[in-house]
């Protein structure tokens, strides 16, 4: 970490002036990466400059907010902000917020000759049931002057009457290819050199989340204009998969002491907290060939238990030692 800060000071840090996630966010529906089925339909809306109420459902980082903002821009052009109300429903999620803020905005007529206004409710699944109930008639009564775009992680948390008023778009986790493409494009436009295996590492740690990928890339690029695989893992506090596999292998082959030594090395080298390690180890667990599926369940239970104890205030060394010992025993049986 010290090395990282030192580098930032020494370098002319124009890389850090603006977040790349924001800078390279698609401005138009046609620029969106991945989600081909969604993009195809949204481009028609963008072209016609009109659309029904929309509900975007899908995991984080799959482009729901991006799609909503891009569509808004396509429909309104440069002056999109005056006809847009953006609300994060996890901050303002009560009945009063809907009745006051949303209804007030919806009932006034659009500015500057626009045909309608747009209300974007981010994380709408955080709205209370009563607040969602209040939305229903607003969506109908002001449908002529106001369109809703809602985003949520789980559509089952949106009450049925609202689902019935919306066209629903399901966003799938981004494919590795989509993330890789965007990483390479951004690298090219920011004029940094990135090794192929480094680009693949960015994809691997992103887990289909574009925000994570671009942030990791930007942090690594702030250290050096030539991004390598090691830099990606070191700056994101992530242990590379082979190191985790080696730890598991050590548990099986070399016994507790060797495995513990390996674990300590990993924590030091990549600056991991205990809970980070447990989490990353588990993500690698499903890829391990030498474990039976039932053994994977055993270890999942073990790791969940250890993580729980760590969160509740258990000591890191002691808990991780206990985990290592139990993994050793499970693997040598």
């Amino acid at each position: 970490m010290g090395m990282f800060i030192e580098h930032c000071r020494n370098r002319n840090t124009n890389q850090m002036n603006e977040l790349w996630v924001e800078k390279h966010r698609p401005r138009s529906v046609s620029e969106i990466k991945g989600q081909p089925a969604v993009v195809e339909r949204l481009s028609v809306y963008a072209q016609k400059k009109s659309f029904p109420h929309l509900l975007f459902a899908g995991p984080p980082g799959t482009g729901k907010t991006t799609a909503a903002m891009a569509l808004t821009r396509d429909v309104f052009g440069k002056e999109f902000k005056q006809n847009l109300l953006e609300m994060n429903a996890s901050d303002e999620r009560k009945l009063e917020d809907i009745r006051n803020k949303v209804k007030q905005f919806a009932r006034t007529s659009p500015f500057g000759g626009a045909k309608f206004k747009i209300i974007f409710l981010d994380e709408a699944d955080a709205l209370t049931n009563d607040a969602q109930g209040a939305l229903r008639r607003i969506m109908e009564q002001y449908a002529e002057t106001c369109r809703f775009i809602m985003s949520c992680n789980y559509s089952s948390k949106i009450i049925e009457p609202i689902q019935s008023r919306c066209a629903i778009f399901r966003f799938r986790p981004l494919g590795d290819k989509d993330v890789l493409e965007q990483v390479q494009e951004v690298s090219a436009s920011e004029k940094i050199v990135i090794d192929d295996e480094a680009a693949n590492a960015v994809v691997a740690i992103s887990l289909g989340d574009m925000r994570k990928a671009l942030t990791a890339l930007q942090v690594a690029a702030a250290i050096d204009g030539h991004v390598t695989r090691n830099m990606i893992y070191e700056t994101t506090a992530t242990a590379p998969p082979e190191a985790l596999q080696q730890y598991l292998l050590a548990c099986r082959e070399d016994g507790f002491h060797a495995a513990r030594r390996r674990l300590r090395e990993l924590l030091d080298k990549f600056g991991l907290a205990g809970t980070d390690f447990v989490n990353q180890l588990h993500r690698e667990l499903y890829n391990t060939d030498f474990l039976s599926e039932l053994a994977k369940l055993d270890l999942t239970e073990l790791m969940a238990e250890i993580d729980f104890r760590l969160v509740e205030g258990g000591g890191e060394q002691l808990q991780l030692d206990a985990m290592t010992a139990r993994i050793c025993q499970a693997l040598t049986q």
Binding site: A37, V38, R41, L55, S155, S156, I158, E160, Q163, S164, A167, I168, F169, R170
Partner: peptide, 8 residues
């Protein structure tokens, strides 16, 4: 249907 099935 593929894109936007409702929960029900």
């Amino acid at each position: 249907l593929e894109l936007g099935r409702r929960d029900t």
